[in-house]
C-alpha cells in the first residue's frame, strides 16, 4: 500500500510527515515521502494538505 508520489511536483516540504494522523510517513534518502509503518487509516490528510498536490494514497488491499 505505497504512497504514490509525483517526484516532479514534490518539494520535500514534509507537510505530509508533519500532519500524518498515525505518524507513519517519513522522507526517504531522496527526500520523497514513503510509509515507514504499515498502519495507515487512509484518513487522506497527507493527500489533502500536500501544497503541491504531489501525493496520492491508495487503500490497503484488505479494505479496498
Amino acid at each position: 500500500m505505497p504512497l504514490i508520489v509525483d517526484e516532479d511536483l514534490c518539494t520535500s516540504c514534509g507537510v505530509c510527515v508533519d500532519r500524518c494522523t498515525m505518524d507513519i510517513i517519513r522522507l526517504n534518502d531522496d527526500g520523497f515521502p514513503y510509509k515507514k509503518y504499515d498502519e495507515c487509516w487512509y484518513c487522506g490528510v497527507c493527500e489533502e494538505d500536500c501544497p503541491e498536490n504531489a501525493l496520492i494514497i491508495d487503500l490497503p488491499f484488505q479494505v479496498k
Binding site: M22, E39, C40, W41, C43, Q62, V63
Partner: peptide, 13 residues
C-alpha cells in the same frame, strides 16, 4: 471484519 488492524470506524489513534 476486514482483518486490517487499523481499518476501524473511529480514529485508530
Amino acid at each position: 471484519n476486514s482483518g486490517y488492524l487499523y481499518g476501524t470506524f473511529d480514529y485508530p489513534g
